[in-house]
Design a protein around this nucleic acid. Structure first.
Lengths: 248, 248
DNA sequence: GCAAAAGTGTTCCGGATACACCCATGC
DNA sequence: GCATGGGTGTATCCGGAACACTTTTGC
C-alpha cells in the first residue's frame, strides 16, 4: 500500500465530516390501504417535497435508539412500541447535496396511530397511501419525494411484502385482539391480492404459534354475518409453513 | 421541540466526528469446509485478535465501491468479481473504543481465491473454517475476534445460509462449469446437512433458470463413478420452488 | 468383479387450491 | 327470508422425502 492509502485508511481526521442519520418508513393501514408516514420538507434542499421522517444519530445512542426516538417524536407517542427493524444503509456521495450523509434506513409497522405532528423543519406530516406515491415510475399526480427516498421506499415496501410470507409481521398492523379475516385483509392489502377466506383461515390456524385463540367473539359489522373469534398474536416470529404469495 | 433538540437535529457540525467504515465477511470453500477471510490486527485495540477485513469509506466513493475496493486489496486481485451484498450496519456507541465508528457490514462469496495478503495494519490474513471460530459461544481453542465481529459474522452466516434457499447464490461458491454434485456439496457444507443426491439433482433441474447444461462431462475422481454433466450458472437469481432446508 | 458416483423411477405424504356447503348474524 | 361474513369438508394437484434401481466409471 502507498503512503496515501495508509493515511486514507488509518487517519480518520483526514476525512471531511460524515453525517450519520436514520430514516424510517413507518407503514400502517388507513381505510384498508397500505400507507406510509411522510413529512413535507420546510427547508432546502427539496423544499416542499415529501420525505421519510428521520434525523441525526446522537453521539451516545445506538442507531436503533435513534430510529425509535425519531419515530416517537414524529408520531407523537411517548414511546414507539410497534415493529422496528433495520432495512439497509444508503450513502451515495451525492445523495444529499449539502454534505456526505450516510443514512441507515429502517422499516416500522404499527396499527393506526394518532395523527402525526410535523417536526421542526417540516411544514406537514401525513400518511400517504403507497399506491398514490407511484413508486414504480414518476406520475404527475404523485407528490415529489426528496433525496433517494423513492428508492428507500421501494426497498422498504419489498421488505414488508416479503416478510409477511415467512414471519408473523402481519399482526404488527393490528391492535389485539383481532379476527382472522382482519389478518387476511392485512395480507390482501399489503400484497394487493385476494385470498380465499376458507383456505386462509385453515392455513393460519395450522401454522403453530402464529395466533392464540381467545374466548371472545367480535361484533359483526352492519352488513351482518356470523361473529368471528378473536385472536392474540402468538409466540412465533418465523412461520412454518410459510404463507406464500401465489404469484411469487 | 426544545431549542436543544432543534440544534441537535439540524446542526451537523454540533456532532463529534463519526467514522463510516465497511467490513466484509468473505466466504469461500476450503477443503469442503465453509471458510471466511480474517485479518490479524497489528495495532491496538484488539492487538493480535482476528477481524473482518475492512476500512474507511472514502469521500467520493459509494459504500459498495468501498467494500469492493477493500476486498480487492485484501485478496490480491485487481477487481473482485464474486458476489457482494450489503448485510447490515453496526454502530453501537462503544463498539470501537477509539471513537464512534459506524460500520456497514457486507457479505461476499467467491470460489477459492489466491492466498490473501495482509494489509498494512495487519500481521496476517488467512481463511478460517467457520466451525473453528465457535461463533455460538467462546471456546478456548477458538481465536479471539475483534470488536463486535463475532456478532457480524453470526449475522453474515445466517444470511448466507438462508439465501441459499431462495436464490441461486450457491453457484457463487463455484468456478464454472460445475457438476450438480459440486453444487450439492456447497449446500451440504454451508448448511452442515446431508442431502439426497437423487432428489437434489431432480429438484435442481426442475428449478427454471438455476443452471444451464453444457455438452461437456466432468472427469471422475480416482474413486471411480459415472462421468457427470457440467453446468453453467443460469439466469435466475431467485428460485421457484425454493431449495428448502428440511430441518427449517 | 467390486465400489463409487451419476442419474432415473416409484411410492408416499403433507400442504396448497378450488370450491361446495353449513353456521350465525343484521336487516 | 335474504345477504353477508365465519368457518368446515373434500377432492385434486404438486412438490418433497425416502429409497430402489440402472448406468458408467476407476481400480
Amino acid at each position: 500500500l502507498s503512503e496515501a492509502d495508509f493515511l486514507a485508511d488509518y487517519d480518520p481526521s483526514a476525512f471531511p465530516s460524515v453525517a450519520v442519520t436514520v430514516d424510517i418508513a413507518l407503514f400502517t393501514l388507513v381505510d384498508d390501504r397500505l400507507a406510509v408516514l411522510l413529512v413535507q420538507r420546510g427547508g432546502h434542499p427539496y423544499l416542499g417535497a415529501w420525505a421519510l421522517p428521520g434525523g441525526f444519530v446522537r453521539p451516545d445512542e445506538t442507531i436503533e435508539d435513534a430510529a425509535g426516538r425519531e419515530l416517537a417524536e414524529e408520531t407523537g407517542v411517548a414511546r414507539f412500541d410497534g415493529h422496528l427493524e433495520q432495512l439497509a444503509t444508503y450513502g451515495d456521495p451525492d445523495r444529499d447535496p449539502r454534505m456526505r450523509v450516510v443514512s441507515v434506513a429502517h422499516v416500522a409497522i404499527a396499527p393506526q396511530l394518532p395523527d402525526p405532528r410535523a417536526g421542526s423543519d417540516a411544514t406537514g406530516a401525513r400518511y400517504w397511501a403507497v399506491d398514490d406515491l407511484a413508486l414504480g415510475r414518476r406520475r404527475r399526480s404523485a407528490p415529489p419525494l426528496a433525496f433517494d427516498h423513492r428508492t428507500i421506499l421501494r426497498d422498504a415496501l419489498e421488505r414488508v411484502r416479503s416478510k409477511l410470507e415467512y414471519t408473523s409481521l402481519a399482526t404488527s398492523f393490528l391492535d389485539a385482539p383481532f379476527t382472522i379475516s382482519a389478518l387476511r385483509r392485512v395480507y390482501e392489502t399489503v400484497w394487493g391480492t385476494e385470498l380465499d377466506p376458507g383456505n386462509f383461515q385453515r392455513k393460519l390456524l395450522n401454522t403453530p404459534g402464529f395466533v392464540r385463540p381467545t374466548e371472545r367473539l367480535a361484533i359483526p359489522g352492519s352488513s351482518g354475518g356470523r361473529r368471528a373469534r378473536l385472536y392474540l398474536p402468538g409466540p412465533a416470529t418465523t412461520l412454518h409453513p410459510a404463507v406464500l404469495r401465489s404469484n411469487a
